[in-house]
Write a protein that binds this DNA or RNA. Structure first.
Ligand code: MN
Ligand code: MN
Ligand code: ZN
Ligand code: ZN
Lengths: 136, 136
DNA sequence: TCTTGACTTAGACAAAGTCCAGGGTACGAT
DNA sequence: ATCGTACCCTGGACTTTGTCTAAGTCAAGA
């Protein structure tokens, strides 16, 4: 059983076929699927799984911090199982491919106190954009 | 007449009451309104202006580079008239307020070649997040 | 003033996501 | 092993955000 499902169970959550399949679909590196893409792949393994359940399960995984929501464009949110190693994203202008990247240093450090307007700033998300090798 | 409308006209575009009102609504600093917020404020000045025209006009302004689209959450895009001075955004977790901020250095410089996966990287968008003074 | 192509409008449509009532099931208790 | 039930899943209605189109209107040059 995956880490993810084990953690869900430790929280007292029922282990269902649907949750198992969603967790399996999200396995791997550089995975940044939309909810509908997750649904499409889940259906291949469990044809009767509903869209609502995919949304619910993804939402639960985000709540417990095992999956991250990524909004790289103005379209559908993407769901990223790489929740334990902080990282940023590199997105192709043309095809939309998303890679995990690890910039130097802490991006927060670049924002001087005078530019914080009294906010308690605690996070920085960086989206790098460019053309991928296939699209060049 | 605003710069913005002057530029529109230089491009051979007709100067209509609707375009004038949308440009007026977007005037100011730290303005990051959604299309529906622009529409609501435009209606106060020109009650018959349609949603479609607001979307069309905002899209045109983005095309000519006088307005920037900002996606700070997974919700509606925001429209930002501060298109000439490069900047990033600081967003309140709780109330969603958006401020323009100017971090030190070039955010692109933090991404080493080995982390570029063969992409031609040309832009970086940073969203800083925290609690604003009112929400603390 | 007249003409005309560009602009605007209302409403249909689409994509992404939320919510609900009713039926189904995982799992602790027996 | 079976039961009971609290929690989960489903289909579909609904909401939000955005796009598109056909028909009417009008800004601006002739
Ligand atoms: Mn990622
Ligand atoms: Mn801005
Ligand atoms: Zn590409
Ligand atoms: Zn706030």
């Amino acid at each position: 059983m995956s880490d993810l499902l084990e953690r869900l169970r430790e929280r007292g959550w029922r282990l269902t076929a649907q949750r198992r399949v969603v967790a399996e679909v999200l396995d791997g590196d550089h995975v940044h699927l939309t909810a509908d893409e997750v649904h499409a792949r889940a259906i291949e393994r469990l044809p009767e799984i509903s869209r609502a359940t995919v949304y619910n399960t993804l939402g639960e995984m985000v709540t417990i911090g095992e999956v991250i929501e990524v909004a790289t464009d103005g379209r559908a949110k993407r769901y990223d199982p790489n929740a334990h190693r902080p990282h940023q994203h590199l997105v192709c202008f043309r095809c939309g491919t998303v890679r995990d990247v690890h910039p130097h240093g802490d991006p927060l450090a670049a924002l001087p106190p005078a530019e914080r307007f009294g906010f308690t700033v605690s996070a920085a998300e960086v989206t790098y954009r460019g053309l991928c090798p296939d699209c060049s």
